[in-house]
């Protein structure tokens, strides 16, 4: 199946995004990065490192688990509850510009949950969205501010992001899924 981003391209995209962030926000003094579990977390950490390299900024980084805000949680679905992981935002988000980081932007429902969660932590000045891949098919009025690569897909396909920290290598693969809805 096609690899749409290899390790090199992932790395270059993240550096480009870091520069875009600095340009758009005129620096990074009031920024904070919050990665959505699971793969948004290492992406946020890499962006923090890139912001340091590119502009010398120390941008605080946090971790968000959106499980308790999922809009399918209240349905009586068959099967177990999603595993809950720890949310860790060791700084106040009040008055900051939050860069919310995730691997794939698809329906927008995860981002909706993340926005709800963030609002419970305080009142940021602004929230900007960073994704490595935008695969389309939005179900909510949500768009990304920074995109690594736009990858046109069908709903029958799945997009698999693999990252060194979790999966042992960096790549983005598009798969055909049999009988997917």
């Amino acid at each position: 199946m096609p690899i749409v981003m290899d390790a090199d391209r992932v790395g270059r995209s993240l550096m480009r995004i870091a520069h875009e962030i600095l340009e758009r926000n005129r620096g990074a003094d009031k920024l904070a990065l919050i990665g959505i579990r699971a793969r948004g977390v290492p992406l946020a950490e890499r962006l923090a490192a890139n912001l340091k390299t590119a502009g010398g900024y120390d941008v605080p980084t946090g971790t968000l688990d959106i499980t308790l805000y999922r809009d399918d949680l209240m349905k009586h679905q068959v099967g177990p509850q999603p595993i809950l992981r720890r949310t860790d935002i060791p700084f106040s988000i009040d008055g900051r510009t939050i860069l919310l980081v995730d691997d794939v932007l698809y329906t927008g429902r995860t981002i909706r949950a993340a926005l709800d969660a963030l609002i419970d932590f305080g009142r940021p000045n602004a929230i900007q969205l960073v994704v490595l891949v935008d695969r389309g098919h939005r179900e909510l009025p949500i768009r990304a501010d920074y995109v690594g690569r736009n990858v046109p897909t069908s709903r029958q396909q799945s997009v698999q992001v693999r990252l060194l920290e979790i999966d042992g290598r960096d790549e983005v693969e598009v798969d055909e899924v049999e009988g997917a809805s």
Binding site: D65, L68, L84, R85, T87, D116, A117, F121, G122
Partner: peptide, 16 residues
């Protein structure tokens, strides 16, 4: 452990 963090927030409530 994950739930405990909620008790440290300003708004100690989630919609789960």
């Amino acid at each position: 452990v994950a739930m405990k963090e909620i008790g440290t927030r300003t708004i100690k409530k989630v919609p789960a």
